[in-house]
Amino acid sequence: MTLDLGLIDEAVAFLDGQVRRTPVEPAPLLSARLGVPVYLKLECLQLTGSFKVRGALFALSKLSEADRRHGVATCSAGNHGIGLAHAAHRLGIPATIYVPAGVDEAKLRAIEALGARVVRSAFSGYDATEAWARQEAARAGLPFLSAYDDPHVMAGNGGTVAAEVLADVPEARTFLLPVGGGGLAGGFGFYVKERLPDARLVACQLAASPALLRSLERGAAVTEMPPVETVAGGLEGGLGVLPFAVLRDRVDHVALVPEQDLREGVRWMLDHHRYLVEPSAAVTVAACLAGDVPPPAGPVVVLLSGRNVSLATLRNILA
């Protein structure tokens, strides 16, 4: 199975009525900064608190009956685990979620509340946790669903969000996307560039873990990165092979955002839009605030991917 427009259209049809069609709203202050209309795609208002539920639902719908009975496993820094736990609970599928040692406690509690089995690793970084999780899942005979390196996840996550954005803001020509493993950006970038070849994609990454930039420099996916201490666990770690195959010829600019700018992005969204977004989601706003966006040729859409952050982390950011 490969990512194509047909698969994304299938995901759009399947998810209709099962997830929220999240709103798009103007961002006047960002518009003044960039000199063009800027809109926020508020996927932070999605069920489970992030876009990840889209890909999880679509991917689980493709499991065989035998796999549905036996269960599924994944590795997650938090949001994919919540999305998968929600989808598995809805579909009656047992789910095991492997998480890094330093997983955000709010995300951990949300996964557990949805009835999934949670196994915390001894590793602080995502990549080492995922390698261990794949071994554990294979030992248990469970199919492993990647948080990003899977065509159904890419179609459900990025593809369906992109379809909504182009329907709601058809004049948009520049799109700012958060990039961790690349599943959201890969699905979104594929759909947008197929529909609008002149569109510009700005990939926003954590400066301390720039897997996409390193992949572009190398010409191959950098699937592992050294672990870093960050409040944005969703941006830490390597890039997926399938997302890189999509993004390598579609990304127009990579914005590298330092840790302190992520925190400012969270504070700015609360102050100016009254929305709570998690640090991994704030990376796109932070890139705008820092001026790390090439002069846009037309209206801009800034994707805000999630809101799941613990009270302790939020207090630390606001302090």
Rank of each mutant, 00 (worst) to 15 (best):
M1G: 14
D4S: 12
G6R: 13
G6W: 00
L7C: 12
Q18S: 10
R20M: 07
V24D: 01
E25T: 15
P26F: 05
A27I: 10
P28M: 03
L30I: 12
L34Y: 05
K41Q: 01
G55Q: 11
G55N: 13
F58V: 04
V72Y: 01
T74H: 08
S76D: 02
L84M: 15
A85Q: 12
L91M: 15
I93S: 07
V99T: 14
V99N: 04
L108C: 04
A116C: 12
S124A: 06
G125Y: 09
T129H: 06
G141A: 13
P143A: 10
A147G: 15
H152G: 01
H152P: 01
V153Y: 08
E164P: 03
V165D: 00
V165A: 12
P170L: 06
G181P: 12
A185Q: 07
E194Q: 15
L201A: 06
R218M: 04
E224Q: 13
T230G: 04
A232T: 03
A245G: 15
L247K: 00
V251D: 07
V251P: 13
D252F: 14
V266N: 03
V266R: 00
H273V: 04
P279Q: 12
A281P: 06
A290D: 10
V293R: 03
P295H: 01
P296Q: 05
P299W: 01
L303G: 01
G306E: 00
S310W: 00
L314S: 07
R315V: 12
